[in-house]
Amino acid sequence: MISYAEAEPSYPEYITGNDLLNYHIAVRKAEREISDNLTARFGMTAFMDQKIGSYSSGMLKKLSLICAFTGNIELYILDEPLITIDTQAAEVLYSLIEEYNGQGKSFLLSSHQDIDPLHLRVKASFYIKDRKLISC
């Protein structure tokens, strides 16, 4: 299974964070406990019953990452995962990537920002030139 997190996530404003997470859990047949753990790590537990319309862009991004990590995924495609999140959340994201990668999962990150090698081990990096993927 592949999971994709958008660069600028946009969700219905009238549902709560939990509504969205429950949907991902149901569709991907994921374990609730793991998702709750993810929510806690991103510091979002207290806001999950609030409507998404009241979220800041940082909270929205964290919610999209929680949903992206929900389920038994083989390949994670994270589009600009570092934009709009604070350094604390970025640390959580780095640790999650390391942890899941240790379990044999793969990650494809697209980013305009340089990834600090101290935070994350990147096995290969590419750039796009004239619609072609070129190895750095």
Binding site: I2, S3, E6, S10, P12, H24, V27, R28
Partner: peptide
């Protein structure tokens, strides 16, 4: 707002 559903199984 619902384009994310397309990437779900």
């Amino acid at each position: 707002c619902l384009s994310f559903t397309r990437s779900l199984p």
